[in-house]
Nucleic acid binder design. Structure first.
Lengths: 332, 332
DNA sequence: CTGAAAGCGCTTACAG
DNA sequence: CTGAAAGCGCTTACAG
């Protein structure tokens, strides 16, 4: 690696061409207002010195950073990987740089990430997780655009795009009931969203059957390898459940593998329902009944609202419900 | 959301306290050199106005951004999710902000992401993918620290931390041969690394058996749902392979599911080998024989080398080989 | 079409 | 222990 080299600046380019920095700057932002001949000399100089603008300086002068922060709990296996992927790629194509913050479900980290983002002058924060009240104040005070994705909070800070996890839980209870299952078992992850779904499921099931479904909790994120323990717990119950509601498709997949390996047929002996409609859900044998959220649509809606806000300077709070769909397949 | 509000600046805090901005700045970077009484008044003022420093301005003045760019092909399901997760989290704890760039295996995007990173004055670029020659020049010219992770290129740009995919391919061929398999089939993904492994496997197999193993190619990233097509292709072969080498554990998992559902026993009728030792590999039934790369160690090594370079100003190129381990399990 | 100058919000020698 | 001032690398009215 080359040793400490001073990066070329606008001044270097200008000197080389023999014009003022303002001319080079204009060429960069709007070439057509610079004379043809000057244009060519500037372009040549830029290439010679390998000039790359310093965007810290530009941010400062423009009061516009073209940076957006993305806060998610972890790098992968969040149910919205596709959504994140699409959003990030499109934002880059729009000329934005994306800051990544991994919260790891840790509230202190959420706060320091939000502060770092604001400090970096981000134009928006897209967050896939909840934010404690004091951090909410920091966000509101700063005036940044804040986009909460994946669920719809009671009282959104600013923009929210997602679906109602409560309704999803309720609908799942009805679905299970309609299919004639009588002993549902919830494998709930310790994430606020999964817990909301389970609560709603229990409430609805109570209404329909006048009883409380059994439940166990696993630590978020729900992973394939947690299935073994979860399944063992079920075996210890007085009576095995006839349907298991999993916090994710990966977990559902694990439960199916465990059940098969214990000689149980899915769904005959025990039915399994996932969450998220990951690629595996449609390909597993048996195919997995699950809840689909349209990640592509979620991404598109997010980008649209964001672009409106960022370009047209709208300042209205906004909530978009992208809904969900229960997809009945072989596993339940 | 609150309307356009001018963010508080150092000047605002200074005015409120009745000191110069330099004093507030000193308080922020090194409180102990400011008088106790002043310190308290400054702290109070900071909280009152909700001051958050503008790091674009700080970058400009300090010529140090505390930003690091992370370039990966996609947001999830890269074999090194854990590594990325660890690196990102630790860097944040070290006070760095992480820029995320998703290349999507697209070389033009690699270039624009590298340029954006340099423009943002990043102190290092960590990249999980290959970089074309002209982009290499941009990197070298800029003088940023460049950390290539996951494999070890012939001629590293700067720092490289990973393992030899060529050796992995060779060792896999020996492993398969030792276990007595005679008709291996490679399911290769179209990523440069997977291709290197397959090449090496073929070369070694040629040496051992004087024949060419059969092979099919799937588009990267290798996913569970590509297993169906891949398996169908094998069925169409004159003779089914007795062992399948998959580009990832997820793909291996898919092949196992497909094989079982076709009434074949794994490994008796057909053995399966994955790559990566994902969580599922040890939990699937049968458990999956695979190649493990210690993602945690990879992350630690990366962080260590990075910290050395960033703090101690070392400028030597460096390569670290973290190796790999073939883990024999039930599936082969 | 182009230049000189002010300003964006910090930091840090240099004085005192 | 603190302040005044210069400077980091850009952008953009304002003149010409």
């Amino acid at each position: 690696m080359a040793r400490e080299r001073r990066a070329a600046t606008l001044q270097d380019v200008a000197d080389r061409v023999g014009v003022a920095t303002s001319t080079v700057s204009r060429y960069l932002s709007n070439p057509s207002i610079v004379a043809e001949a000057t244009r060519e000399r500037i372009q040549a100089a830029i290439e010679e010195v390998g000039y790359i603008p310093n965007s810290a300086a530009a941010s400062l002068a423009l009061k516009r950073s073209k940076v957006i922060a993305l806060l998610v709990p972890q790098f992968a296996n969040t149910l919205f990987d596709t959504t994140i992927d699409l959003i990030t790629t499109e934002l880059h194509d729009d000329g934005y740089t994306v800051l990544l913050g991994l919260t790891g479900w840790d509230l202190d980290r959420v706060e320091s990430l939000v502060r770092a983002a604001i400090s970096r002058q981000v134009e928006a924060i897209i967050s896939g997780g909840h934010v404690p009240d004091d951090v909410r104040k920091v966000i509101e005070r700063s005036g940044v655009t804040y986009v909460h994705i994946w669920d719809i909070p009671e009282d959104p800070i600013d923009i929210a795009i997602g679906f109602s996890h409560r309704e999803a839980g309720t609908e799942l209870a009805r679905f299970v009931h309609n299919r004639g299952y009588v002993r549902p078992h919830l494998v709930t992850a310790t994430s606020s969203r999964a817990m909301v779904r389970s609560q709603a499921f229990k409430a609805e099931w109570q209404k329909l059957m006048q009883e409380e479904p059994s439940e166990q909790t696993i630590s978020a994120p729900s992973r394939f390898d947690q299935a073994r323990g979860a399944f063992a717990n079920m075996r210890r119950m007085d009576e095995m459940p006839d349907v298991v509601l999993c916090a994710s498709d990966t977990l559902a997949q694990g439960i199916i593998v465990e059940a098969s390996s214990a000689g149980l047929q899915v769904p005959e002996d025990i039915a399994v329902i996932g969450f998220g409609n990951a690629a595996i859900a449609g390909e597993m044998r048996p195919t997995i009944t699950t809840v689909e959220i349209d990640g592509r649509r979620l991404a598109q809606e997010t980008l649209q609202v964001l672009r409106e806000r960022l370009n047209d300077d709208g300042f209205d709070k906004k909530t978009v419900d992208v809904g969900f769909t229960i997809i009945g397949r072989e596993s339940a």
